[in-house]
C-alpha cells in the first residue's frame, strides 16, 4: 500500500498566537491556524491531554488548515501558556476544575465564532481528558457540528465522557484509540455502543494514547479520517 500525501508549500499562512480570556478572566493561550485556499470549509477546536499543551496538535493542525479547515488549538487553564487560578497541577484536579476547562473551551468557540465560524460548522476535538472536555462542551452546545475524541477517558472524579452522551444526542461521533491502550479501549467501545447516534470508532494498532496516535503512518491515515469527519459534519 502506497501512502501519498502531498503537502502544498504555497499560500501557507503562519499560525497566529492569541491570548483569549475565560468568563472568570483566566488568560488562555491559543494558536489559530487559518484555513488555506480561501474561505474556511469548517472549524475545529483542539484540546490537549492532561498536562500537555497545544503544541502537541501542531502537525495535525497544519494538515487540517491545508485541507481548508480553520483550527484553534487551545491551552486550557493549567496547561501550556495559560493561567492556573487553582494553583495546583491538573493531575490533582477534581470535577469543578475540569468543568472550568469546559468553559475555557467555550471561550475557544467564541473566538472561532468571532472569526466567522459559527458553532454549526465547528467540531470540538480533544485528546484524553481533552477529549472528555470536548464531548462535554459539545453536549452543552447543541448547535456544534460534532466531536472527535482521541483516547477519551471516563473518570467519574474528573469528566466522565459517558455522562455527556445524552446531551450530545444523535450527532455523529468520532473516536480514535490505540489497540494496546488498556482500559481506554474498553471506554472507547463503550462510548461507541452507548452513543445515541452513529460513531466512527478507529482502533489503531499500537499503544499510542491521545495525540500520540497522530504519529507515524497510522497517524497520517487517522489525520485524514478526522479531517474528512470534520468536513462532512452536517
Amino acid at each position: 500500500m502506497i501512502s501519498n500525501l502531498l503537502l502544498s508549500t504555497a499560500a501557507a499562512v503562519a499560525p497566529l498566537e492569541l491570548i483569549l480570556h475565560s468568563t472568570d478572566s483566566v488568560s488562555l493561550a491559543a494558536t489559530y491556524y487559518a484555513a488555506q485556499g480561501g474561505e474556511a470549509r469548517a472549524g475545529l477546536l483542539l484540546l490537549p491531554m492532561l498536562g500537555a499543551d497545544r503544541s502537541t496538535w501542531a502537525g495535525f493542525a497544519a494538515q487540517a488548515s491545508a485541507a481548508g479547515i480553520a483550527v484553534l488549538a487551545l491551552d486550557p487553564r493549567g496547561h501550556g501558556g495559560s493561567g492556573n487560578p487553582a494553583g495546583t497541577p491538573p493531575a490533582a484536579w477534581g470535577r469543578a476544575e475540569w468543568l472550568a476547562v469546559v468553559e475555557d473551551a467555550r471561550a475557544g468557540l467564541r473566538e472561532l465564532s468571532a472569526r466567522g465560524l459559527a458553532p454549526e460548522r465547528v467540531v470540538a476535538a480533544g485528546a484524553s481528558i481533552g477529549a472528555s472536555a470536548a464531548l462535554h462542551l459539545a453536549a452543552s452546545e447543541p448547535s456544534l457540528a460534532g466531536a472527535a475524541l482521541l483516547s477519551p477517558g471516563d473518570n467519574p472524579a474528573r469528566l466522565p465522557s459517558s455522562a455527556a452522551l445524552p446531551g450530545y444526542g444523535k450527532r455523529p461521533l468520532f473516536i480514535g484509540v490505540g489497540a494496546g491502550d488498556g482500559a481506554f479501549v474498553d471506554i472507547a467501545r463503550k462510548l461507541a455502543r452507548e452513543a445515541p447516534g452513529s460513531t466512527a470508532l478507529i482502533v489503531q494498532p499500537g499503544s499510542g494514547h491521545g495525540t500520540q496516535l497522530l504519529a507515524g503512518s497510522g497517524g497520517r491515515t487517522l489525520t485524514a479520517q478526522i479531517i474528512r469527519f470534520v468536513l462532512d459534519a452536517p
Partner: peptide, 12 residues
C-alpha cells in the same frame, strides 16, 4: 471546496 485544485490525496 478547494480539494480539486490542490494535489492532496487524503487516503492511501
Amino acid at each position: 471546496a478547494g480539494y480539486g485544485s490542490n494535489e492532496a490525496v487524503f487516503f492511501p
